[in-house]
Design a protein around this nucleic acid. Sequence first.
DNA 1: TAGATTGTTAATCGATTAACAATC
DNA 2: TAGATTGTTAATCGATTAACAATC
Lengths: 217, 217
Amino acid sequence: MAQRKNISDAVVRRLPRYLRYLSEMHEHGVPRISSRELGERMGLTPSQIRQDFSHFGEFGQQGYGYRVGDLLAAIRHILALDREYHMVVFGAGNIGQAVAKYPNFSERGFLIDALFDTDPELVGKKVEGIKVLHWDKAAQYLKNHSVDIGVICVPHAAGQEVADRLIQGGVRSIWNFPPRDLSVPEDVLVENVHLSESLYALVFRSKHRDTCGGQKG
Amino acid sequence: MAQRKNISDAVVRRLPRYLRYLSEMHEHGVPRISSRELGERMGLTPSQIRQDFSHFGEFGQQGYGYRVGDLLAAIRHILALDREYHMVVFGAGNIGQAVAKYPNFSERGFLIDALFDTDPELVGKKVEGIKVLHWDKAAQYLKNHSVDIGVICVPHAAGQEVADRLIQGGVRSIWNFPPRDLSVPEDVLVENVHLSESLYALVFRSKHRDTCGGQKG
DNA sequence: TAGATTGTTAATCGATTAACAATC
DNA sequence: TAGATTGTTAATCGATTAACAATC
Protein backbone atom coordinates (compact mmCIF):
# COMPACT_ATOMS: atom_id res chain seq x y z
CA MET A 1 0.00 0.00 0.00
CA ALA A 2 2.90 2.19 -0.83
CA GLN A 3 2.63 5.46 1.01
CA ARG A 4 -1.03 6.25 1.42
CA LYS A 5 -0.56 8.71 4.23
CA ASN A 6 2.05 11.24 5.10
CA ILE A 7 5.15 9.71 6.57
CA SER A 8 5.92 11.11 9.99
CA ASP A 9 9.30 12.59 10.74
CA ALA A 10 9.89 9.89 13.33
CA VAL A 11 9.66 7.24 10.61
CA VAL A 12 11.87 9.23 8.22
CA ARG A 13 14.60 9.42 10.87
CA ARG A 14 14.47 5.68 11.45
CA LEU A 15 14.79 4.72 7.79
CA PRO A 16 18.50 5.57 7.46
CA ARG A 17 19.10 3.62 10.63
CA TYR A 18 17.38 0.55 9.21
CA LEU A 19 19.55 0.97 6.16
CA ARG A 20 22.68 1.04 8.27
CA TYR A 21 21.83 -2.08 10.24
CA LEU A 22 20.70 -3.98 7.18
CA SER A 23 23.81 -2.98 5.21
CA GLU A 24 25.98 -4.29 7.95
CA MET A 25 24.08 -7.56 8.20
CA HIS A 26 24.16 -7.93 4.44
CA GLU A 27 27.92 -7.44 4.41
CA HIS A 28 28.22 -10.12 7.06
CA GLY A 29 26.23 -12.49 4.89
CA VAL A 30 23.12 -12.65 7.08
CA PRO A 31 20.39 -13.89 4.73
CA ARG A 32 17.23 -13.29 6.75
CA ILE A 33 16.02 -11.31 9.76
CA SER A 34 12.75 -11.19 11.67
CA SER A 35 11.27 -8.01 13.08
CA ARG A 36 11.80 -9.49 16.53
CA GLU A 37 15.54 -9.95 16.04
CA LEU A 38 16.03 -6.65 14.22
CA GLY A 39 14.16 -4.97 17.05
CA GLU A 40 16.47 -6.53 19.58
CA ARG A 41 19.53 -5.32 17.74
CA MET A 42 18.25 -1.80 17.18
CA GLY A 43 16.41 -1.29 20.43
CA LEU A 44 12.98 -1.01 18.80
CA THR A 45 9.82 -3.06 19.23
CA PRO A 46 8.99 -5.59 16.50
CA SER A 47 5.62 -3.87 16.16
CA GLN A 48 7.21 -0.56 15.37
CA ILE A 49 9.45 -2.07 12.74
CA ARG A 50 6.57 -3.83 10.98
CA GLN A 51 4.46 -0.71 11.29
CA ASP A 52 7.25 1.39 9.77
CA PHE A 53 7.83 -0.93 6.81
CA SER A 54 4.12 -1.29 6.15
CA HIS A 55 3.98 2.37 5.12
CA PHE A 56 5.86 1.47 1.98
CA GLY A 57 4.69 -1.99 1.03
CA GLU A 58 4.97 -5.62 2.02
CA PHE A 59 8.55 -6.78 2.22
CA GLY A 60 8.35 -9.86 4.43
CA GLN A 61 7.02 -13.37 4.47
CA GLN A 62 4.88 -14.86 7.19
CA GLY A 63 6.69 -17.44 9.20
CA TYR A 64 10.02 -16.49 7.68
CA GLY A 65 10.79 -12.81 8.18
CA TYR A 66 12.61 -10.53 5.75
CA ARG A 67 15.26 -11.35 3.20
CA VAL A 68 18.04 -8.95 4.22
CA GLY A 69 19.19 -8.28 0.66
CA ASP A 70 15.70 -7.58 -0.63
CA LEU A 71 14.75 -5.40 2.31
CA LEU A 72 17.99 -3.48 1.99
CA ALA A 73 17.34 -2.81 -1.67
CA ALA A 74 13.78 -1.76 -0.90
CA ILE A 75 14.83 0.73 1.75
CA ARG A 76 17.59 2.06 -0.44
CA HIS A 77 14.95 2.68 -3.07
CA ILE A 78 12.49 4.21 -0.59
CA LEU A 79 15.21 6.60 0.57
CA ALA A 80 15.95 7.36 -3.09
CA LEU A 81 19.57 6.35 -2.66
CA ASP A 82 19.59 4.43 -5.92
CA ARG A 83 20.53 7.48 -7.93
CA GLU A 84 23.19 10.20 -7.95
CA TYR A 85 22.92 13.67 -6.47
CA HIS A 86 24.82 16.76 -7.49
CA MET A 87 25.77 19.08 -4.70
CA VAL A 88 27.51 22.40 -4.23
CA VAL A 89 28.98 23.63 -0.96
CA PHE A 90 29.02 27.27 0.05
CA GLY A 91 31.82 28.05 2.45
CA ALA A 92 35.13 26.22 2.13
CA GLY A 93 36.09 26.64 5.79
CA ASN A 94 36.44 23.83 8.30
CA ILE A 95 33.01 22.38 8.00
CA GLY A 96 32.69 22.95 4.27
CA GLN A 97 35.96 21.15 3.67
CA ALA A 98 35.03 18.36 6.06
CA VAL A 99 31.83 17.80 4.10
CA ALA A 100 33.70 17.97 0.79
CA LYS A 101 36.26 15.45 1.96
CA TYR A 102 33.90 13.04 3.69
CA PRO A 103 34.49 9.86 1.70
CA ASN A 104 31.12 8.26 2.43
CA PHE A 105 29.30 10.80 0.35
CA SER A 106 30.98 10.29 -2.99
CA GLU A 107 30.87 6.53 -2.44
CA ARG A 108 27.14 6.76 -1.98
CA GLY A 109 26.48 8.85 -5.06
CA PHE A 110 26.53 12.26 -3.44
CA LEU A 111 28.80 14.18 -5.76
CA ILE A 112 30.19 17.51 -4.72
CA ASP A 113 30.75 19.42 -7.92
CA ALA A 114 31.89 22.77 -6.62
CA LEU A 115 32.84 24.77 -3.57
CA PHE A 116 32.12 28.48 -3.28
CA ASP A 117 33.92 30.94 -1.06
CA THR A 118 34.89 34.61 -0.95
CA ASP A 119 38.35 34.12 0.52
CA PRO A 120 40.89 35.00 -2.22
CA GLU A 121 43.31 32.56 -0.58
CA LEU A 122 40.94 29.72 -1.39
CA VAL A 123 39.33 30.77 -4.66
CA GLY A 124 41.00 29.11 -7.63
CA LYS A 125 42.50 26.29 -5.59
CA LYS A 126 41.23 22.75 -5.42
CA VAL A 127 40.04 20.93 -2.33
CA GLU A 128 40.02 17.17 -2.73
CA GLY A 129 39.93 17.69 -6.48
CA ILE A 130 36.97 20.06 -6.28
CA LYS A 131 37.48 23.55 -7.59
CA VAL A 132 36.79 26.49 -5.29
CA LEU A 133 34.89 29.26 -7.08
CA HIS A 134 34.11 32.78 -5.99
CA TRP A 135 30.58 33.51 -4.81
CA ASP A 136 30.23 35.91 -7.72
CA LYS A 137 30.32 32.91 -10.01
CA ALA A 138 27.49 31.15 -8.23
CA ALA A 139 24.56 32.54 -10.22
CA GLN A 140 26.34 31.71 -13.45
CA TYR A 141 27.21 28.25 -12.22
CA LEU A 142 23.70 27.44 -11.07
CA LYS A 143 22.35 28.57 -14.43
CA ASN A 144 24.55 26.08 -16.26
CA HIS A 145 24.50 23.13 -13.91
CA SER A 146 21.80 21.03 -12.39
CA VAL A 147 22.25 21.05 -8.62
CA ASP A 148 20.14 18.82 -6.40
CA ILE A 149 21.38 19.89 -3.00
CA GLY A 150 22.99 23.08 -1.78
CA VAL A 151 25.09 22.87 1.37
CA ILE A 152 25.53 25.97 3.51
CA CYS A 153 28.69 26.05 5.60
CA VAL A 154 29.29 29.79 5.84
CA PRO A 155 29.33 31.86 9.05
CA HIS A 156 25.79 32.22 10.30
CA ALA A 157 25.50 35.89 9.42
CA ALA A 158 25.76 35.00 5.73
CA GLY A 159 23.52 31.94 5.80
CA GLN A 160 20.30 33.56 4.67
CA GLU A 161 21.97 35.37 1.79
CA VAL A 162 23.50 32.14 0.56
CA ALA A 163 20.15 30.39 0.85
CA ASP A 164 18.56 33.15 -1.22
CA ARG A 165 21.20 32.72 -3.92
CA LEU A 166 20.73 28.97 -4.00
CA ILE A 167 16.97 29.29 -4.27
CA GLN A 168 17.34 32.00 -6.88
CA GLY A 169 19.48 29.54 -8.82
CA GLY A 170 16.81 26.86 -8.67
CA VAL A 171 18.11 24.70 -5.83
CA ARG A 172 15.23 23.28 -3.82
CA SER A 173 16.96 21.20 -1.16
CA ILE A 174 19.28 22.82 1.36
CA TRP A 175 21.53 21.23 3.95
CA ASN A 176 22.11 23.94 6.49
CA PHE A 177 24.93 23.96 9.03
CA PRO A 178 25.09 27.47 10.52
CA PRO A 179 23.01 27.85 13.70
CA ARG A 180 20.19 29.88 12.25
CA ASP A 181 16.82 28.92 10.80
CA LEU A 182 16.42 29.91 7.18
CA SER A 183 13.32 31.50 5.77
CA VAL A 184 12.54 29.85 2.47
CA PRO A 185 9.55 29.42 0.15
CA GLU A 186 7.18 26.54 0.82
CA ASP A 187 8.55 24.30 -1.90
CA VAL A 188 12.14 24.47 -0.64
CA LEU A 189 13.30 21.87 1.87
CA VAL A 190 15.81 22.63 4.59
CA GLU A 191 17.58 20.04 6.69
CA ASN A 192 19.46 21.57 9.59
CA VAL A 193 22.61 20.24 11.22
CA HIS A 194 23.08 22.41 14.25
CA LEU A 195 26.15 21.07 16.00
CA SER A 196 25.94 23.36 19.01
CA GLU A 197 22.38 22.35 19.67
CA SER A 198 23.33 18.70 19.57
CA LEU A 199 26.10 19.41 22.07
CA TYR A 200 23.76 21.41 24.31
CA ALA A 201 21.29 18.54 24.33
CA LEU A 202 24.09 16.21 25.44
CA VAL A 203 25.09 18.56 28.23
CA PHE A 204 21.49 18.92 29.39
CA ARG A 205 20.95 15.18 29.52
CA SER A 206 24.28 14.86 31.27
CA LYS A 207 23.19 17.28 33.98
CA HIS A 208 19.84 15.55 34.38
CA ARG A 209 21.34 12.11 33.90
CA ASP A 210 18.87 10.41 36.20
CA THR A 211 15.72 11.74 34.58
CA CYS A 212 16.70 11.32 30.93
CA GLY A 213 19.20 8.77 29.64
CA GLY A 214 20.21 6.46 26.84
CA GLN A 215 21.52 6.97 23.33
CA LYS A 216 20.06 9.78 21.28
CA GLY A 217 20.52 11.95 18.26
CA MET B 1 7.82 23.24 40.06
CA ALA B 2 11.23 22.64 38.69
CA GLN B 3 11.38 19.32 36.90
CA ARG B 4 8.97 16.97 38.60
CA LYS B 5 8.75 14.57 35.70
CA ASN B 6 11.13 13.29 33.08
CA ILE B 7 11.77 15.79 30.34
CA SER B 8 10.91 14.36 26.94
CA ASP B 9 13.45 14.40 24.17
CA ALA B 10 11.19 16.70 22.14
CA VAL B 11 11.47 19.35 24.85
CA VAL B 12 15.23 18.87 25.20
CA ARG B 13 15.67 19.48 21.47
CA ARG B 14 13.64 22.69 21.64
CA LEU B 15 15.57 24.21 24.52
CA PRO B 16 18.69 25.09 22.51
CA ARG B 17 16.44 26.63 19.92
CA TYR B 18 14.75 28.82 22.50
CA LEU B 19 18.21 29.84 23.63
CA ARG B 20 19.18 30.81 20.12
CA TYR B 21 16.11 32.95 19.49
CA LEU B 22 16.28 34.60 22.90
CA SER B 23 20.01 35.33 22.51
CA GLU B 24 19.36 37.03 19.24
CA MET B 25 16.50 39.08 20.63
CA HIS B 26 18.57 40.00 23.65
CA GLU B 27 21.41 41.18 21.43
CA HIS B 28 18.93 43.31 19.53
CA GLY B 29 17.79 44.87 22.79
CA VAL B 30 14.30 43.36 22.83
CA PRO B 31 13.22 43.64 26.49
CA ARG B 32 10.11 41.46 26.59
CA ILE B 33 8.39 38.73 24.62
CA SER B 34 5.08 36.94 24.95
CA SER B 35 4.60 33.25 24.22
CA ARG B 36 2.34 34.29 21.36
CA GLU B 37 5.02 36.38 19.66
CA LEU B 38 7.82 33.92 20.34
CA GLY B 39 5.62 31.21 18.90
CA GLU B 40 5.07 33.22 15.75
CA ARG B 41 8.79 33.73 15.27
CA MET B 42 9.72 30.13 15.95
CA GLY B 43 6.79 28.40 14.33
CA LEU B 44 5.46 26.92 17.58
CA THR B 45 2.17 27.34 19.38
CA PRO B 46 2.08 29.61 22.44
CA SER B 47 0.67 26.68 24.40
CA GLN B 48 3.65 24.53 23.62
CA ILE B 49 6.08 27.23 24.65
CA ARG B 50 4.35 27.81 27.99
CA GLN B 51 4.05 24.08 28.50
CA ASP B 52 7.78 23.64 27.80
CA PHE B 53 8.90 26.37 30.17
CA SER B 54 6.55 25.20 32.90
CA HIS B 55 8.62 22.03 33.27
CA PHE B 56 11.36 24.10 34.84
CA GLY B 57 9.61 26.83 36.78
CA GLU B 58 7.67 30.05 36.37
CA PHE B 59 9.54 32.59 34.32
CA GLY B 60 6.80 34.91 33.10
CA GLN B 61 4.36 37.45 34.34
CA GLN B 62 0.65 37.47 33.64
CA GLY B 63 -0.37 40.26 31.36
CA TYR B 64 3.23 41.05 30.51
CA GLY B 65 5.06 38.05 29.13
CA TYR B 66 8.69 37.15 29.68
CA ARG B 67 11.67 39.42 30.31
CA VAL B 68 14.04 38.32 27.54
CA GLY B 69 17.17 38.74 29.62
CA ASP B 70 15.81 36.79 32.56
CA LEU B 71 14.39 34.01 30.44
CA LEU B 72 17.65 33.73 28.53
CA ALA B 73 19.60 33.41 31.76
CA ALA B 74 17.13 30.83 33.05
CA ILE B 75 17.39 28.67 29.94
CA ARG B 76 21.15 28.99 29.90
CA HIS B 77 21.10 27.68 33.43
CA ILE B 78 18.62 24.91 32.65
CA LEU B 79 20.87 23.79 29.80
CA ALA B 80 23.83 23.96 32.19
CA LEU B 81 25.64 26.34 29.89
CA ASP B 82 26.73 28.55 32.77
CA ARG B 83 29.85 26.52 33.39
CA GLU B 84 32.86 25.26 31.46
CA TYR B 85 33.32 21.83 29.92
CA HIS B 86 36.55 20.06 29.19
CA MET B 87 36.57 17.98 26.06
CA VAL B 88 38.94 15.71 24.19
CA VAL B 89 38.60 14.77 20.54
CA PHE B 90 39.59 11.39 19.17
CA GLY B 91 40.48 11.54 15.50
CA ALA B 92 42.17 14.65 14.11
CA GLY B 93 40.90 14.15 10.57
CA ASN B 94 38.48 16.42 8.75
CA ILE B 95 35.65 16.29 11.20
CA GLY B 96 37.83 16.20 14.28
CA GLN B 97 39.67 19.30 13.13
CA ALA B 98 36.45 21.03 12.17
CA VAL B 99 35.13 20.43 15.68
CA ALA B 100 38.39 21.58 17.23
CA LYS B 101 38.42 24.76 15.18
CA TYR B 102 34.74 25.62 15.51
CA PRO B 103 34.93 29.02 17.21
CA ASN B 104 31.48 28.87 18.83
CA PHE B 105 32.53 26.13 21.18
CA SER B 106 35.42 27.81 22.95
CA GLU B 107 33.40 31.04 23.13
CA ARG B 108 30.65 29.15 24.89
CA GLY B 109 32.87 27.47 27.43
CA PHE B 110 33.45 24.20 25.61
CA LEU B 111 37.19 23.82 25.87
CA ILE B 112 38.99 21.29 23.74
CA ASP B 113 42.05 20.31 25.71
CA ALA B 114 43.53 17.61 23.52
CA LEU B 115 43.28 15.78 20.22
CA PHE B 116 44.19 12.13 19.86
CA ASP B 117 45.21 10.39 16.67
CA THR B 118 47.39 7.53 15.48
CA ASP B 119 48.74 9.22 12.37
CA PRO B 120 52.45 9.94 12.97
CA GLU B 121 52.12 12.90 10.59
CA LEU B 122 49.75 14.54 13.04
CA VAL B 123 50.97 13.41 16.45
CA GLY B 124 53.16 16.02 18.10
CA LYS B 125 51.79 18.87 16.01
CA LYS B 126 49.29 21.46 17.12
CA VAL B 127 45.90 22.12 15.61
CA GLU B 128 44.51 25.51 16.50
CA GLY B 129 46.82 25.58 19.49
CA ILE B 130 45.69 22.16 20.68
CA LYS B 131 48.31 19.45 20.93
CA VAL B 132 47.75 16.21 19.06
CA LEU B 133 48.66 13.19 21.18
CA HIS B 134 49.00 9.55 20.25
CA TRP B 135 46.17 7.19 21.22
CA ASP B 136 48.64 5.34 23.42
CA LYS B 137 48.75 8.38 25.64
CA ALA B 138 45.01 8.49 26.11
CA ALA B 139 44.73 6.29 29.20
CA GLN B 140 47.50 8.24 30.89
CA TYR B 141 45.89 11.55 29.89
CA LEU B 142 42.46 10.58 31.14
CA LYS B 143 43.94 9.49 34.45
CA ASN B 144 45.46 12.91 35.01
CA HIS B 145 42.78 15.20 33.59
CA SER B 146 39.13 15.65 34.24
CA VAL B 147 37.27 15.30 30.95
CA ASP B 148 33.56 16.06 30.72
CA ILE B 149 32.91 15.13 27.12
CA GLY B 150 34.68 12.79 24.73
CA VAL B 151 34.23 13.44 21.03
CA ILE B 152 34.62 10.53 18.61
CA CYS B 153 35.63 11.52 15.08
CA VAL B 154 37.51 8.41 14.00
CA PRO B 155 36.56 6.13 11.10
CA HIS B 156 33.55 4.10 12.09
CA ALA B 157 35.42 0.82 12.42
CA ALA B 158 37.38 2.28 15.35
CA GLY B 159 34.46 4.03 17.05
CA GLN B 160 33.59 1.36 19.59
CA GLU B 161 37.18 0.89 20.65
CA VAL B 162 37.58 4.61 21.23
CA ALA B 163 34.34 4.69 23.20
CA ASP B 164 35.62 1.85 25.37
CA ARG B 165 38.83 3.75 26.06
CA LEU B 166 36.95 6.90 26.96
CA ILE B 167 34.64 5.04 29.32
CA GLN B 168 37.58 3.18 30.79
CA GLY B 169 39.12 6.58 31.45
CA GLY B 170 36.04 7.79 33.29
CA VAL B 171 34.35 9.86 30.57
CA ARG B 172 30.58 9.57 30.86
CA SER B 173 29.34 11.78 28.01
CA ILE B 174 30.19 10.97 24.41
CA TRP B 175 29.56 12.99 21.27
CA ASN B 176 29.66 10.42 18.49
CA PHE B 177 30.15 11.25 14.81
CA PRO B 178 30.89 7.98 13.01
CA PRO B 179 27.79 6.26 11.62
CA ARG B 180 27.53 3.46 14.11
CA ASP B 181 25.64 3.08 17.36
CA LEU B 182 27.87 2.58 20.35
CA SER B 183 27.23 0.03 23.05
CA VAL B 184 27.90 1.66 26.39
CA PRO B 185 26.98 1.09 30.03
CA GLU B 186 23.72 2.54 31.29
CA ASP B 187 25.27 5.52 33.02
CA VAL B 188 27.11 6.73 29.91
CA LEU B 189 25.34 9.16 27.60
CA VAL B 190 25.83 9.16 23.85
CA GLU B 191 24.71 11.93 21.52
CA ASN B 192 25.00 10.94 17.88
CA VAL B 193 25.66 13.26 14.95
CA HIS B 194 25.17 11.07 11.94
CA LEU B 195 25.69 13.33 8.95
CA SER B 196 24.79 10.76 6.32
CA GLU B 197 21.51 10.03 8.03
CA SER B 198 20.66 13.69 8.07
CA LEU B 199 21.43 13.88 4.37
CA TYR B 200 19.36 10.77 3.61
CA ALA B 201 16.42 12.26 5.46
CA LEU B 202 16.72 15.38 3.29
CA VAL B 203 16.80 13.30 0.14
CA PHE B 204 13.80 11.26 1.23
CA ARG B 205 11.73 14.33 1.99
CA SER B 206 12.88 15.80 -1.28
CA LYS B 207 11.60 12.77 -3.19
CA HIS B 208 8.30 12.82 -1.32
CA ARG B 209 8.16 16.58 -1.30
CA ASP B 210 4.40 16.71 -1.43
CA THR B 211 3.71 14.40 1.49
CA CYS B 212 6.34 15.72 3.90
CA GLY B 213 7.73 19.25 3.85
CA GLY B 214 9.06 22.18 5.83
CA GLN B 215 12.21 22.83 7.80
CA LYS B 216 13.58 20.00 9.89
CA GLY B 217 16.59 18.72 11.77
C1' DT C 1 -9.87 49.42 35.87
C1' DA C 2 -9.58 46.79 31.37
C1' DG C 3 -6.67 44.18 28.50
C1' DA C 4 -3.21 40.98 28.15
C1' DT C 5 -0.92 36.99 29.19
C1' DT C 6 0.58 33.65 32.25
C1' DG C 7 0.65 28.61 34.32
C1' DT C 8 -2.12 24.67 34.46
C1' DT C 9 -5.77 21.50 33.69
C1' DA C 10 -8.54 19.15 30.21
C1' DA C 11 -9.22 17.72 25.34
C1' DT C 12 -7.28 16.26 21.19
C1' DC C 13 -4.28 14.36 18.26
C1' DG C 14 -0.70 11.27 16.74
C1' DA C 15 2.69 7.75 17.51
C1' DT C 16 3.83 3.47 19.70
C1' DT C 17 2.59 -0.98 21.30
C1' DA C 18 -0.30 -5.04 21.64
C1' DA C 19 -3.19 -8.42 19.68
C1' DC C 20 -4.48 -11.54 16.18
C1' DA C 21 -6.13 -13.51 11.85
C1' DA C 22 -3.72 -14.85 7.74
C1' DT C 23 -0.30 -17.79 5.85
C1' DC C 24 4.34 -19.24 4.70
C1' DT D 1 1.29 -30.31 9.56
C1' DA D 2 3.01 -27.21 13.48
C1' DG D 3 5.59 -23.22 14.52
C1' DA D 4 6.87 -18.82 13.30
C1' DT D 5 6.17 -14.43 11.74
C1' DT D 6 3.98 -11.26 8.91
C1' DG D 7 0.67 -7.06 7.94
C1' DT D 8 -3.03 -4.76 10.02
C1' DT D 9 -6.48 -3.39 13.18
C1' DA D 10 -7.40 -1.99 17.92
C1' DA D 11 -5.67 -0.28 22.43
C1' DT D 12 -2.53 2.48 24.84
C1' DC D 13 0.43 5.90 25.72
C1' DG D 14 2.46 10.42 25.35
C1' DA D 15 2.87 14.89 23.27
C1' DT D 16 0.55 18.88 21.50
C1' DT D 17 -3.15 22.06 21.60
C1' DA D 18 -7.10 24.39 23.60
C1' DA D 19 -9.42 26.46 27.35
C1' DC D 20 -9.62 29.20 31.36
C1' DA D 21 -9.08 30.89 36.07
C1' DA D 22 -5.62 33.75 38.16
C1' DT D 23 -3.42 38.10 38.14
C1' DC D 24 -0.17 41.54 36.58
